[in-house]
């Protein structure tokens, strides 16, 4: 396990998290956040913890995974902090330190896998991947799925870019660059 101070340093330097030092703890972000009531800590509190170095606690909080990217906090933050971007960074850091993957990470992986493979996505493909890990959720959505099917809304054929080789070479190179950085 990486120490709090190493993680804080990494967040501040590599992920440009230093900006959160400007926070005046007004709570505008948490009040604006659609899912804050369900978070372990609202963004305000999360940043208060992060800047004092409680990074392991921060990275294990559900907060970062409940950010819906609505940018409500960002446009209103009186200190101009890019809160949503910091949530993205913290999600990546949490994944790096190997937290137990929350549901949203499963969803993101189910989303990314077909994109990596085909370059494009259909809802069915993403749902199928996610449904394998969360059969309960999948079952609950069966009636809705059937309704969609009856309205010819489900795209069963996988979509793909044509120059798939080229696309995959690009992604491979991007992955290489990501590893070295």
């Amino acid at each position: 396990m990486m120490t709090d101070s190493v993680l804080r340093d990494r967040f501040f330097k590599k992920y440009h998290g230093q900006e959160i030092e400007n926070c005046i703890q007004c709570g505008m972000c948490s009040g604006s956040c659609p899912l804050a009531p369900h978070m372990d800590f609202g963004p305000r509190q999360l940043f208060a913890m992060a800047r004092e170095g409680d990074m392991n606690e921060v990275l294990h909080a559900n907060t970062i995974w409940l950010c819906v990217s609505c940018y409500n906090c960002v446009v209103k933050c009186p200190r101009g902090i890019s809160i949503t971007d910091h949530m993205y960074s913290l999600k990546k850091m949490a994944t790096e330190v190997g937290i137990k993957p929350p549901k949203m990470l499963h969803l993101y992986r189910s989303f990314n896998a077909p994109v990596e493979k085909n370059g494009r996505l259909t809802d069915v493909m993403a749902m199928a991947g996610y449904g394998l890990r969360h059969p309960g959720a999948a079952m609950a959505n069966v009636p809705l799925g059937l309704k969609m099917l009856s309205r010819k809304r489900l795209e069963l054929k996988p979509a793909s870019v044509k120059n798939i080789d080229g696309f995959q070479r690009v992604l491979k190179k991007a992955k290489e660059l990501e590893r070295v950085s």
Partner: peptide, 25 residues
């Protein structure tokens, strides 16, 4: 700091009121 003032109420007894939304920090 108040995030929002809205006429969208969640329970019927608040109908006609303004909701002031803020984190009690």
């Amino acid at each position: 700091k108040v995030s929002q003032i809205t006429d969208m109420v969640d329970s019927p007894e608040d109908e006609g009121k303004l909701m002031v939304v803020a984190e009690d920090t």
